[in-house]
Design a protein around this nucleic acid. Structure first.
Length: 861
RNA sequence: GCCCGCGUGGUGGAAUGGUAGACACAAGAGACUUAAAAUCUCUGGGCCGAGAGGCCGUGCCGGUUCGAGUCCGGCCGCGGGUACCA
């Protein structure tokens, strides 16, 4: 008997697939196409289990669809621009490009042995000039269509390193390297007008039926359509009125104060004349720009001394406060606060001794607000205290509508539709990104670069020497060789834009580029017409909002600029969000680094001693944080290469698909891989045994044959359904079951041979190498990868008898075995005649008997 | 803070509103073996009981239903996102 040695058979079959060229996508007018895409990876250095899981899922779909007769496109590339490459260059010298391309080479080398059915001829990296040059061309087309503009925006500024920080680089309000408190600073930045599409991006979500509901909900909430009232408060000092936007105009009689953002132009105007206000605003600005940080910060405010008139009562004056929780980006950057019906406003009012006035009370419990704001659902009816539009009892929704109508009629405000979605700021003051292809000319202003001058490539030197990335800031900014250029319009000396693009731009159209990766225009329309849309997109839930929303916007922008056909305005027909591979984090419990931040240890560095986890080398105690996202910065990334080397790719693939449902996070444990390998060995040896069986010709089909083949057809059915519905773990569970049936079966050689070949086919999307080997061993024709997917015989799926549980008042008391088509009355009679049933009934007459055919009998007493 | 998920044995998990724990892992017992490994067989939610069997049980509390892990409401815990991580 031979042994299962994955290393030999995997190399052999990968070579066979390569030679047959079966993964090269070809336009085929005679076959329907299927485009399966997994979110492309960031080349961080090494692949991790999350990648293996993600690409194996895509591979299962790809191979399955191919067997079903589709012409499949399954490409792979690299999301290659971004901060880590610059950080690496900063930390250890070298060039971000070198680091990135080295990583790509390593990771591709690690992916190849997995035997994925990828068309590698279409591979590209977003940092290839051929790719980002086309991106620059599209940027110019977007400019032409008015989808690009410049405005001021706030960034995190590190005053020591003199550089812009990403939110992730702001830790507890301080720069990650310098440790200096960050400041908010305004810069002129480039923006995409995604807000032009707010309504459409929202409405079109309804049609994305094959997207997870949760993703659609998250996007809808992010776009955040609201209907509210915009109006102005007159200032008592005669200054410019303060425009506010509110979604609860019905609570105007409960107004306590007007709050403005520290970034509101009025706040900025006041700080010039008032040292206290300047100090308060400066304090507010000593905080990162992230919404989470602002919302979680202690709510603080400062009375400006200004007052405004209440629009409904000229004698009623409200104070104007600057408050750190009011966002300049949303609405008008100013609100009126109604503490009685908003918890945050109430906390603020109590803290600063501002009035709290109820505008409505609950119908059943009309008590005034104290320390808990009364915030009922807008659909709940409440009692209004002194509503100016004459309401008595009404819901919040009715009151809002009535108020807007009243105010519009009175002429001092208007109902407006507002979106939370902001325009997409794409400027980055960094080197390792796609240069924005515009030129600043003293005479002509901002001028688009000429298309024939594209790509505007990133420089690799400055002043003839390699770029020094250890200096903070953007190397493009301080590089005159690169910066100085001729104005594309007038030809005079001018300066290049030194901002590069957000890396989300790169990933917003790569799916379209895969349809024609070598084209000298962003896309080749004929190719896009054939291959688009992506039929199945697979990626992490962490991309539910930004990446997917930006891609949806981009597809629309590419459509109106002629780079995608109309049918591709929603580029992803179906979306599946797989869970993350998680692993415990080991945090040093005894010390921190020189900046006072946590130290994380690799799984290999820790061990258990006397029931507690410690660092093996030092004996320091370790805090174990279970089930955290694998992340380089937390040192909890598991390397799949060891698994592949020890057991083979099929084992790794089988393991990541089994046990956990694909959409759920999976905690990595080492023990499962060995079990997967054992099982594959068992299948291999089963194949060997069947090959050595004696033929027994002349004998007709036995009952054992029939039983085996029935289970085979059930396996075909279950595995097919499992793959179609992303229930890979369920498909694998059935394959375990079928393997056990086959191993124990007394069937003859012909039936067993048919069963093992079908088993190989059903396993082929998950363990393609092993499947090919079994197929060849049993004399199958050609490659199993090219064999048509088996079809289940419906007649073989139906059992003649079914087992029905009998419940009495919802508790299971007995079961009966009946023919599957026995009618209800007979089932009922049989059920009631069961000894156990009679015993439990104890002479009582059943009130009702519910018979669900093929399912259950429930007797109600 | 806000938005979106998730929570079932020792572990991963299964279950169109219809027998909770399929299929695995780890564990225990047995077979084979001089022995070990490998392989094979069996056992397995908790409590009570010699057994037959009974009671309890899907994070917590309540509701809808003949019937709830599944649907609804309120909590608790964990995770993702929060616009410059990708």
């Amino acid at each position: 008997m031979s042994r299962y040695t994955a290393a030999d058979i995997e190399a052999k079959w990968q070579q066979a697939w390569d030679e047959a060229g079966i993964f090269t996508a070809k336009r085929d007018p005679n076959r329907p196409k299927y485009y399966v895409l997994e979110m492309f990876p960031y080349p961080s250095g090494r692949i991790h289990m999350g990648h293996v899981r993600n690409y194996t899922m895509g591979d299962v779909i790809s191979r399955y669809k191919s067997s079903c007769g589709f012409s499949v496109l399954h490409p792979m590339g690299w999301d290659a621009f971004g901060m880590p490459a610059e950080n690496a260059a900063m930390a250890q010298g070298g060039h971000p490009g070198t680091w990135t391309y080295d990583n790509i080479k390593t990771m591709k080398g690690q992916m190849k042995p997995l035997g994925l059915s990828i068309d590698w001829s279409r591979e590209f990296a977003t940092c290839d000039p051929e790719y980002y040059g086309q991106q620059q061309a599209m940027f110019l087309d977007f400019m032409d269509k008015g989808l690009v503009y410049r405005k001021n925006a706030t960034v995190n500024w590190d005053p020591v390193d003199m550089t812009v920080l990403a939110n992730e680089q702001v830790i507890d309000g301080c720069g990650w390297r310098s440790g200096a408190p960050v400041e908010r600073r305004d810069l002129t930045q480039w923006f995409f007008k995604i807000s032009d599409y707010s309504g459409e991006l929202l409405d079109a979500l309804d049609d994305l039926e094959n997207w997870p509901e949760k993703v659609r909900t998250m996007q809808a909430n992010w776009i955040g359509k609201s209907k509210g009232l915009q109006f102005a408060f007159e200032r008592t000092d005669g200054g410019a009125p303060i425009e506010v936007y509110t979604t609860r105009p019905d609570t105007l009689m409960g107004a306590s104060f007007v709050g403005i953002s520290p970034d509101n132009p009025l706040a900025k105007e006041l700080e010039a004349k008032n040292a206290d206000i300047a100090a308060f605003n400066a304090e507010c600005r000593r905080m990162g720009t992230s919404a989470a940080e602002m919302e979680k910060a202690e709510k603080k405010g400062l009375d400006t001394g200004l007052t405004v008139k209440h629009p409904l009562d000229p004698n009623w004056e409200l104070p104007v406060w600057i408050a750190n929780f009011i966002l300049m980006d949303y609405g008008t950057g100013a609100v009126f606060a109604c503490p009685a019906h908003d918890q945050r406003d109430l906390d603020f009012a109590r803290k600063y001794g501002l009035p709290v006035r109820d505008t409505f009370v609950a119908l059943d419990d009309p008590k005034p607000v104290e320390n808990e704001a009364f915030v009922p659902m807008k659909s709940e009816r409440v009692k209004w205290l002194d509503h100016f539009a004459g309401l008595d009892e009404a819901t919040g929704d009715e009151a809002v509508a009535a108020t807007i109508a009243f105010v519009e009629n009175a002429g001092w405000g208007k109902g407006v539709e507002q979106f939370r979605l902001r325009d997409w700021g794409l400027s980055r003051q960094r080197y390792w990104g796609c240069p924005i292809p515009v030129v600043h000319c003293d005479d002509c202003g901002v001028v688009p670069e000429k298309k024939e001058n594209l790509p505007i490539k990133l420089p690799f030197d400055e002043g003839g020497k390699p770029i020094d990335f250890s200096i903070p800031g953007n190397p493009l900014d301080r590089n005159p060789d690169w910066r100085n250029c001729a104005c594309p319009s007038c030809g005079k000396p001018a300066q290049r834009e030194t901002d590069t693009m957000d890396t989300f731009v790169d990933s917003s159209w790569y799916y379209a580029r895969f349809t024609s990766p070598g084209a000298t225009t962003p896309t080749d329309l004929a190719e896009a017409e054939y291959w688009m849309n992506v039929d199945q997109y697979i990626g992490g839930i962490e991309h539910a909002i930004l990446h997917l929303l930006y891609s949806r916007f981009f597809a629309r922008a590419m459509n109106i600029t002629g780079h995608l056909p109309d049918k591709a305005t929603e580029p992803f027909n179906a979306l599946f969000t797989q869970g993350m591979v998680t692993h415990a984090i080991y945090k040093n419990a005894e010390r921190t680094d020189e900046h006072g931040r946590a130290i994380y240890h690799y799984p290999e560095e820790v061990e258990e001693r006397d029931g507690v986890m410690v660092v093996a080398a030092t004996g320091e105690n370790v805090t174990v944080i279970p089930s955290a996202k694998m992340s380089k910065s937390k040192n909890n990334v598991v390397d799949p290469v060891n698994i592949i080397n020890a057991f083979g790719a099929d084992t790794a693939r089988w393991f990541v698909l089994s046990d956990s449902p694909p959409e759920r996070d999976v905690e990595w444990t080492a023990s499962g891989a060995e079990a997967a390998h054992k099982h594959l060995s068992r299948v291999w040896m089963l194949c060997d045994r069947i090959g050595e069986m004696d033929d027994t010709p002349g004998q007709g089909p036995t009952q054992a044959d029939d039983e085996l083949l029935r289970d085979m057809h059930k396996a075909i059915h279950d595995v097919t359904m499992g793959i179609e519905s992303f229930g890979f773990n369920a498909a694998i569970a059935k394959l375990y079951g079928f393997t056990n049936t086959l191993a124990k079966s007394k069937a003859g050689k012909a039936a067993k041979r048919q069963a093992i070949m079908t088993l190989a086919q059903l396993m082929s999307p998950m363990t393609p190498h092993l499947a090919e080997d079994i197929w060849a061993h049993q004399g199958g024709e050609g490659l199993v990868a090219l064999a048509p997917w088996p079809k289940a015989d419906e007649a073989m799926l139906i059992d003649d008898t079914v087992t029905l549980p009998i419940q009495i008042n919802g508790k299971r008391r007995a079961e009966i075995s009946v023919p599957k088509d026995m009618d209800k009355a007979e089932v009922e009679k049989l059920a009631l005649s069961q000894e156990a049933v009679i015993k439990v009934l104890d002479g009582n007459t059943p009130k009702k008997v519910i018979v669900v055919p093929g399912r259950i009998v429930n007797v109600v007493v």
